[in-house]
Simulated assay, not measured.
Amino acid sequence: MPAPTQPSSPQANAAASFDPLRPKLIRIAYRMLGSVADAEDVVQEAFIRWFAADRGAVHEPEAFLRRVVTRLCLDQLKSARHRRETYVGPWLPEPVVEPAEEEVDEDVTLPLMLALERLTPLERAAFLLHDVFGLGFDEIAETIGREAAACRQLASRARTHVRGARPRSEVPRQRGLEIAAAFFAASRSGDMDGLRRLLAADVVVQADGGGKKPAVGRPIEGVDAVMAFHGSLAQAFAETMSRMVRYATINGLPGFITLEGDTLQTTALEIEDGRIKAVYVMRNPDKLRHLPEAVH
């Protein structure tokens, strides 16, 4: 006679319905917050609320959990605004390093994530839920507590702000990584002529050290200023010997992960018309903790 089946615990039942939705919920939270750690914390809080909810009365768990996550993110963004204002140096979102075999996710590219930072929290929520995740304005209205017509206006205003952040032309992955390799070689070897050939005239460098690691205090704009900056780094690179960890797609952009002395760093390159238009460098160790242990 077969042994009687043991009843599942309430926590196991909650997890069974929640876990398949967790990746999608983290995608929403990361795009709202620009932080992997904060996104994971928000989604874990959503699970706690799901566990405590009357789940039998919830007809659409995914819609319910989207609302919970979005509202938690809106609460976070209110306090994050003050943290951004007191942040030391340029602020960049935490880098998401994508596996080589996956398609590039244009919704997490650094230019778009930075454009989202310029939106109000409600504009950001309406735009992401509608334009990125394809939700209707009635559901968005219920989620953020505004009329559907107001949500439509929020998304429209946001769309106007972020339109310029979309790439004008796609760079094939392999070509992008080839340019990243050429940039790494030229910048670390002091090949200034080779470096200049890679850069657009209006190139911009942004580096986020968060006050924890040395980084430029403001964006460096224009090819001459960027060349002078890399010229000043040539001696430092020669002394510390940058160690390549691996080339990677970082927030949808070609780039690489390196060790600069004892400092882990990601570098992502925005490429347009075959030239590097922007260089995004992350040095803040608090924003690199989520990377796999193998790269540390």
Rank of each mutant, 00 (worst) to 15 (best):
G231M: 09
T263A: 13
V36P: 07
F133V: 02
G209C: 02
P20K: 08
R218Y: 07
V96C: 06
V295A: 02
D19E: 10
A236F: 10
L72C: 05
P254L: 14
A80I: 03
T160P: 02
L195A: 04
T109F: 04
F133Q: 10
G164D: 15
A181C: 03
E293F: 12
A268C: 02
R157N: 01
P111S: 14
R83P: 05
E102S: 13
V104R: 14
R218E: 09
R283E: 06
R118A: 14
L74F: 13
A39G: 07
T109V: 08
R159S: 15
H290F: 01
R197E: 15
V295E: 01
L92S: 08
T267M: 12
A207Q: 15
H296G: 11
A201S: 13
R146L: 06
L122P: 03
G190C: 05
G194P: 11
A180E: 14
G209T: 05
V68Q: 12
R81H: 10
L122F: 11
N13W: 11
R27S: 15
V245R: 02
R166G: 13
R289A: 10
H161D: 06
L129N: 07
V279F: 05
S187D: 12
A225G: 00
P10K: 10
Q174P: 08
G255S: 04
I257V: 13
R175M: 15
R81I: 08
S17P: 05
N13E: 15
E293K: 12
R71I: 03
R67Q: 15
A53H: 06
R83A: 13
F47S: 10
D224F: 00
A53C: 02
A201L: 12
P4M: 10
A39F: 03
K213R: 14
A3D: 05
K277I: 01
L253Q: 03
G261C: 10
E85Y: 10
D286T: 12
I26P: 07
P2C: 00
S189Q: 14
I140N: 02
G255D: 03
G190D: 10
T249P: 00
G231L: 11
A278T: 02
I257P: 09
C73I: 07
L77C: 03
F137D: 00
K277Y: 00
D224G: 05
R124Q: 03
A16H: 04
P111H: 12
P23Q: 08
L92N: 02
I179N: 09
V204S: 05
T258S: 11
E94P: 01
A238D: 01
R218F: 09
E260N: 14
H161N: 09
A63T: 06
A115Q: 08
Q76G: 14
D286P: 06
G56W: 00
R31W: 05
T5L: 14
G255L: 01
D193F: 14
V69Y: 12
A57W: 01
I250H: 09
Q174W: 13
